[in-house]
Amino acid sequence: MTNLVDIPKVNAKNMTEKEFFYGHKACAGCGGSVAVRLALKVLGERTYTALPAGCMSAVGFIYPQMAFNTNAIITTFPGAASMASGIAAGAKALGQKDVKTVVFAGDGGTADIGFQALSGMIDRNDDVLYICYDNEAYMNTGIQKSGLTPYGTKTTTTPAGKNIPGTVTHKKNLFEIIAAHDIAYAATASIGYPQDFLNKVNKAKHTKGATFIHVYASCPTGWGTPTETSIEIAKDAVDCGLIFLAEFEDGEYKLNRNPKEFASVKDYLKKQGRFKHMTDEDIQCVIENRDRKWARMRKQWL
């Protein structure tokens, strides 16, 4: 297996000067574009990038403005993983060496409509790094609920009112569902911890076969947060324990960050328009769910 110690670390000082995602039309302060931009800087020039319908494809390729300064393609919405598999298979059959294929898909494109193809890609162990940038709803179409929208979130299809308090389900356990395929490498990350994300992309880059990174990426437009706080809020999510940083490698889970105490969940939620309506009771439900999850992770992963 890949030993991170052997891989030269990529950081702000030594990363390539080249920008591969530039001049795009993402909203100001878009967290997804931070994830795409940084990952591509780690992956470098010999990369095929595949993106299903979603924010990052919608803002990147509007003829004649081509914001991917590298090979990139928009895929069908459910077929990002399979098109990427096809790219990797084509490149292999044509004898191309030192090539990486990467997918950037949103939470809906990954956990909902694209899941079947993703499962097939991992099952075949195709040489593709699949990165899910999770902004917790269908943002491109106007903030509708996805399978990764957390409890309590107000979206345009889960409006919060007198009868229903917004989204009533918790996020799918995407990371563990992926790991259950016995994938070579999977990780969770947040753009609020950028160096950790860079390290994980770098590790996946040097791992042959199917790899997966679930990166938490803020959306000021959909979350109702100021554009300048996109990194901060993604860090807060980790610090309050609603998002965890972990890896799955060699069949083992690893919790990268295991704080003694969590920051306030309420403070994190109340900074965002999408959670403003939540009652103390709703917030308690979120906290209890977080604690159940952490108790299990600590028991099984440490």
Binding site: F20, Y22, G23, K25, Y63, P64, Q65, M66, A67, F68, N69, T70, N71, A72
Partner: peptide, 11 residues
């Protein structure tokens, strides 16, 4: 299909 990194517009 078009040239990668081609920017006729500024932001």
């Amino acid at each position: 299909q078009y040239k990668a990194g081609y920017l006729p517009e500024t932001n």
